[in-house]
Design a protein around this nucleic acid. Structure first.
Lengths: 220, 220
DNA sequence: GTCTATAGCAAGATAGAC
DNA sequence: GTCTATCTTGCTATAGAC
């Protein structure tokens, strides 16, 4: 008569507690002992479900991504202009991530480690990475953007890289409400929009081809 | 009759030992106890000279930067073409950094933490950051590159950001001898060269101005 | 100011019993 | 699945020698 999903319940109890403590105290200040105690389980039990403290952060990424996709949907349904779609999707990310800024910056280092499964470039991250790129593909596909046709195929990858750059800026952004990051988006998007438009011009052909080759090299 | 530089010698003994162990075993696997033991000093003494394990890494950065500047000099004396200078300086970085690739990647995370003094954006890093940007200024100044005059002033900053991107790729590069990073440089440099040239054209004026505004926002 | 020895804390992680 | 006990390691503290 044991509950079939008792394990799952314990698992969620642990991660919910951990994410709450992360938000309240920050990553470094949240000890595994504190997580276990607050969740009412033993330290050993917490490690039974999460092999390391970092693994708890992975759960955070997954939840953030789901929230972002939901927040981006209204924009994608409303807008058809490429720049407006891109800007809206990026601002949507800030909307959902803003609440976590203080502690997201603190464990950003974990994602930066090349050997970590939490790296955005790791094999383990490919589900969330693919989803993020797919979102950028939606931005492009549903838009009225007129780009070089070959470039258009690589644009989602490039826009994902741009997003990483913006996130990098965001974690360093100390301005109130991360207003500078919004400013960055509002300046970068029209630039990207213009460059995409220029990609069809004949003078830009060689540049466009170089960019495409570069995008493919970066994808590996 | 005490040696006047006894402290300095001990200091160097400790950091030399640490960097050797980092290279042999990696960062995480090198304990402060092991560094002290190998260097023949006490743990307390090691901490007397280096307040933390991370501070030992900072020494590594400084040495790397000095080596890079030395390796870049012949290129800067030899070449006048902008692309050749940029390519040469970037390859020179790979030449000096290559030996440390395995363990540099391992403690890259330390530099990624926004709050860390080892972050390339931190106030504490400003000496080495300024030096790196100054090196890029040398690349631009001594070259025959014809860029939009206003852009030219911001080019060193932008090239430094480009370098960071290349380093990011490099730490993730698993190809033998990091050959893919060299490929990346060889493809990115002509692209940059072309874009810089195009910046003088009238059609590119608004794009160029956007880029300049962006560069200034990023500098803060 | 330079250095040793040692004891000890905090916290991530593990072992093995139940 | 869950627990308690234990290990490891970055780091600190103290007390003292030269």
């Amino acid at each position: 008569m044991t509950e079939p999903d008792r394990g799952q319940q314990t698992r969620e109890l642990i991660v919910d507690t951990a994410l709450r403590l992360f938000r309240e105290r920050g990553y470094d200040e949240t000890t595994m002992r504190a997580v276990a105690k607050e969740a009412g389980v033993s330290v050993g039990n917490a490690y039974y479900y999460y092999a390391s403290k970092e693994n708890l952060v992975q759960e955070f990424y997954l939840r953030l991504q789901v929230e972002h996709e939901a927040a981006a949907q209204p924009v994608l349904e409303r807008e058809t202009d490429f720049g407006a779609r891109l800007r809206g999707v990026l601002h949507a990310w800030l909307d959902v991530a803003g609440a976590y800024h203080a502690f997201a910056a603190q464990f950003f280092k974990i994602a930066a480690e090349p050997t970590s499964p939490l790296s955005p470039f790791s094999a383990e991250s490919s589900p969330s990475r693919d989803a993020a790129i797919a979102l950028m593909a939606q931005v492009v596909e549903g838009s009225t953007a007129r780009a070089d046709p070959e470039l258009r195929a690589d644009l989602p990858d490039l826009l994902w890289l741009m997003t990483l750059g913006i996130v990098l800026y965001w974690v360093h952004d100390r301005s109130p409400e991360q207003a500078n990051t919004r400013l960055l988006i509002d300046r970068a998007v029209p630039l990207v929009d213009r460059l995409v438009g220029l990609s069809r011009l004949r003078i830009m052909r060689s540049v466009t081809r170089d960019v495409i080759a570069l995008a493919r090299l970066l994808r590996g």
